[in-house]
């Protein structure tokens, strides 16, 4: 396994840990979709390396770790990665702040799919994470870009 893959994996591992980290109940709606944000970043930066299958496997991993219905997040993340890859040339041209809007809608999309088994909760558990994810996107983008340049990940 090359060093590049290891570093990408480590960013995913950190994102997964942040998804599992226990938050007070009132804060749970403010948890960004860390794994999806990292997926989207790598899909935009290295579309040849991180593809839909990465989204699928990361989603499956999250399904198992979160105890969700198997395949739900796998499907959602694969779809999100697909959309990011489909428009990566356009998205790359946008300034970071403008990228927050597509990120916002991607998270809404992912959350709606994740909520299909519990339609009672569609509401703040969908738009809360979407808003916060959009807000932290510039931060994630900057950190991961620094990582990518520093370690020459290609």
């Amino acid at each position: 396994m090359s060093r590049n893959i290891v570093i990408i994996m480590l960013t995913f591992l950190l994102a997964i840990l942040l998804m599992l980290l226990q938050l007070p109940e009132a804060w749970q709606m403010f948890r960004p979709e860390w794994v999806m944000l990292v997926l989207v970043y790598w899909a935009l930066a290295l579309p040849k390396r991180v593809g839909v299958m990465w989204g699928w496997w990361m989603g499956l991993l999250m399904d198992v770790l979160l105890g969700a219905h198997l395949g739900l997040l796998a499907f959602a993340y694969a779809l999100a990665t697909y959309l990011a890859l489909k428009f990566y040339l356009q998205l790359r041209q946008y300034p970071v702040l403008q990228q927050t809007l597509p990120v916002f809608f991607l998270v809404i999309f992912v959350k709606l799919i994740a909520a299909t088994m519990a339609p009672e909760f569609v509401g703040r558990l969908v738009w809360g994470p979407a808003l916060v994810s959009a807000a932290v996107w510039p931060f994630i983008f900057t950190v991961l870009r620094w990582l990518r340049r520093h370690f020459h990940i290609r």
Partner: peptide, 13 residues
């Protein structure tokens, strides 16, 4: 186990 599971269901580990 102090981890948060799927936010859409009331599950604990």
């Amino acid at each position: 186990v102090t981890v948060d599971l799927d936010p859409f269901s009331q599950w604990v580990l």
